[in-house]
Design a protein around this nucleic acid. Structure first.
Lengths: 146, 146
DNA sequence: CTTGAAAGCCCTGAGGT
DNA sequence: ACCTCAGGGCTTTCAAG
């Protein structure tokens, strides 16, 4: 079912590097003809190994100059508090990624905004208003190595 | 030069949702004909707003079941220590993202490995061997909200 | 910006080893 | 599971308004 052979892995790596690489080129690189290549890619999509394709956007070009990693702890860890917090987070467009983690804090969020002023406003008027929020700790991204 | 109008932003949003959406479909959704749509997309690629395209891969399907967010502080903050650390990190395939941050710690890494055993090995034999490493704090991702 | 057109390439499925 | 081949659609470019 979800068994991937070496060729499937090659395809995945190629499409990760360039999601728009066409069938013919993929076929050439893996040494198969277009039809089995096409069918393998379709299969990978169907079984959910390839979840989709996306354009990589330069965030500064769209006015999101500031990236912040924000660690949040909740005051209560009852199911209700967790559910309320998680659905609130899902609704906030400034939050680009959100993970529930086991460690020193409860959640790890990445947030992208135009500048510090907008971030401050986000903290005060969006994040701090979610019920059950405990501690919040912000780390500001200075450079992206990867 | 890097001036984006409302139509460019629509295009960006469409291609973020589906990087393989074809020209004709993008054109239909933004209400232009194919020629200017094609030229706008090429321009966005040329000026670096669209940095590329990629396939989104289900990491569990490729045997990376464990995602860890790892905060690292350096012992010394001299340029040499920073350079050594950063180039070492860039070479580690387990590290999927790496940010130099201003906050409680110096670096924020996301690491993807098969399981806890492999992570422990990574910590001991890869990360801990980089010179100038100070504190390391791991948070294990239990669920991804976004 | 629009329409229209032309060449070429690619996708996709049929049919066969 | 692989291959070749062919029809039809899409991409890409250009010209003219």
């Amino acid at each position: 079912m979800m068994v991937l052979d070496a060729i499937d892995k090659q395809i995945i790596n190629l499409l990760r590097e360039n999601g728009k690489m066409n069938n013919k080129e993929v076929a050439g690189k893996i040494g198969l003809s277009v039809t089995p290549t096409f069918e393998r890619i379709k299969r990978l999509e169907r079984i959910g190994v390839i979840q989709g394709y996306t354009a990589l956007i330069n965030r500064k070009a769209i006015g999101r100059d500031l990236k912040v990693i924000c660690q949040v702890s909740l005051k209560s860890h009852e199911k209700e508090g967790i559910d309320v917090f998680e659905s609130a987070i899902r609704e906030l467009p400034e939050v680009s990624h959100a993970y529930h983690v086991a460690g020193a804090t409860d959640y790890m969020l990445t947030i992208e905004v135009a500048n510090m002023e907008v971030y401050q406003d986000f903290l005060k008027n969006q994040l701090a208003r979610i019920p059950h929020i405990g501690q919040v700790n912000s780390s500001f991204v200075m450079s992206e190595l990867k």
